[in-house]
């Protein structure tokens, strides 16, 4: 991995980590959903500071270029985030459905009480 790429990665990942942290601090992001992002950005910080991790990973997985091991890590983390989002969306959908039904039933009950 070139030193230029390393420097860019370090700056970007540290900035990203601070950005996420700030979002949580100002309550723009719920900690629950920010957790995967925090872990991800922390992982990026570690990988850019200690690229040996990538060399080690590339070694044991027989990946020729360490940068490809980096891509592997990124894809893995992205998939993790997308999956947690799918879980969150499913839960939201169920909650919204329950709320919509409740509103409908309450409207009808009010209508009946008026009569």
């Amino acid at each position: 991995m070139s030193s230029e790429l390393r420097i860019i990665l370090i700056i970007a990942s540290v900035a990203f980590f601070i950005f996420i942290l700030n979002m949580v601090r100002t309550k723009k992001l719920e900690l629950k959903y920010a957790l995967t992002w925090l872990l991800t950005s922390l992982a990026f910080v570690l990988l850019s500071i200690f690229p040996q991790i990538l060399f080690f990973l590339a070694g044991i997985l027989h990946i020729e270029l360490p940068v490809n091991a980096l891509y592997l890590c990124v894809i893995f983390l992205l998939m993790m985030i997308v999956f947690t989002l799918t879980v969150a969306v499913s839960r939201q959908a169920l909650r919204i459905k329950t709320l919509v039904q409740e509103i409908g039933l309450l409207k009808e009950a009010i209508e009946r009480m008026k009569k």
Partner: peptide, 25 residues
Amino acid sequence: IPVVSLPVNLGIGGAVQTGYKYALR
């Protein structure tokens, strides 16, 4: 006829389930 009007379209399953909730309550 009593009518439960859902504020958002839920699809057949969500609508029928509302009916069962109405029956239960």
